[in-house]
Amino acid sequence: MTDTPTAGRPTVNTVLGPVPADDLGVVAVHEALLSVLPGAQYAPDISMDRAEIYEALEAKVIAFRQAGGRTIVDSTGMFHGRDLTLYEALSRATGVHIVATTGMGPEEKLGGYFLTPQTNPPTPWPAEKFADLFAREVTEGMVVPRIERRAAAGMVTTVADRAGMTPTEESLFRGSARAAAQTGVAVSIRYGADALAELDVVLDERLRPDRVLVGDLDRTDAAGDPGQVAAAVAAKGAFVGIDHVGLNEDPGYLTDAQRAALVLDLVAAGHADKIILSGNAIGVAKGLDAYDLPYEHVLATFIPFLQGEGLSDEDARRILVDNPARLLAVR
C-alpha cells in the first residue's frame, strides 16, 4: 500500500473517496447541488423525480467542467436534500469531484428529534451530541438515512439565525467545531447576526482558525462595515467567504463591483491566502426559490473582471485553486 497515489499527500474527502488536495483544480466552495427545504420532500405539490433532478444537475456540472471547474462542494449539510448516491453517479459521469458536507442549521430547519426529544423535559441537543453525530459522518461515512453510510464528509457546515444565534445554534456551532477539530475537516459557518462574535464561538472550541470558513461576508448586515469585518476575519486567520458572487439586485448583499473592491482590498492587505469566492448557486431547488446562477460564474466571469481590475494571475490561482485546497485538505 506504499504506492497508492495519495500516499503522503494531503487528501480531500469526496463522495467517491479521498482525492489528493492538489488534484482538486478550480473549486466552487459554497454551492448547493440538490437543495431541499426540510419537509418539502413530503409535499404533494413538489416533484422529487430523480431522473429530472439528475438531468438538471448534470447539465450544470458539465457546464462548470467545460469552463475549467474541477470540484464542487455541496455545502448544504446532512439535512437539506443531500443525496449521496445521486452525487456519486453525477461525479462519475461528469468527472467533477463532488465534496458533500455534514452539519445542520439554522435551528428552524432542524427536525424535532434534536429540539424536542422524547424525554421529560424535552431538552434540545447539547454540543457534544452534535459533535458526535457530525464527526461520525467523517470517520464512519455520511448517512443515507436508515440504509447505509457512504463516503466521508468533506466539511462540516452550520448556520445561525439572522435574528441572532439561538442557544441550540450555539450548540451546533460548538459541536461543528469539535467535530472538525476531532476529524481534521474544516468547518463552514454562516453567521446569524454577528460574524466576528460567532467566529469566536467556534474558535473557543480550540479549533485552529485556518480550519474555519466564515461565509456570507458579502452580506451588508455583518454587524459592521463589510470590508472591516472581512479584514478582521482574515486577521484572525480564518477563511473569508465572499460567496454570493453574481448576486447584484439584493439590498442585503454587496454588488459584484463592491465585492471586487473588497477582494482587492483584502489582497492589498496581504490576505490573498484567506479569500474564498463562491456563488451559492442552487443546482435544483425544492421548496425554495430557484437560483440558477451557473457554477462557473466566479471562474468564468468574476475572476476575469477582477483581473481587469488588477488582480494578478498568481492571486487568481490562489483564490480559485490553492485556498480551497488548503481549506478542504483533511489535517
Binding site: 427536525g111 424535532g112 428529534y113 422524547q118 453525530l133 448517512v143
Partner: peptide, 14 residues
C-alpha cells in the same frame, strides 16, 4: 414512529 431527524442517527437503524 420516530421524531423528524431521527433517521440521521444510526443508533436507531434497523
Amino acid at each position: 414512529y420516530g421524531m423528524p431527524g431521527s433517521e440521521l442517527d444510526t443508533q436507531w437503524w434497523k
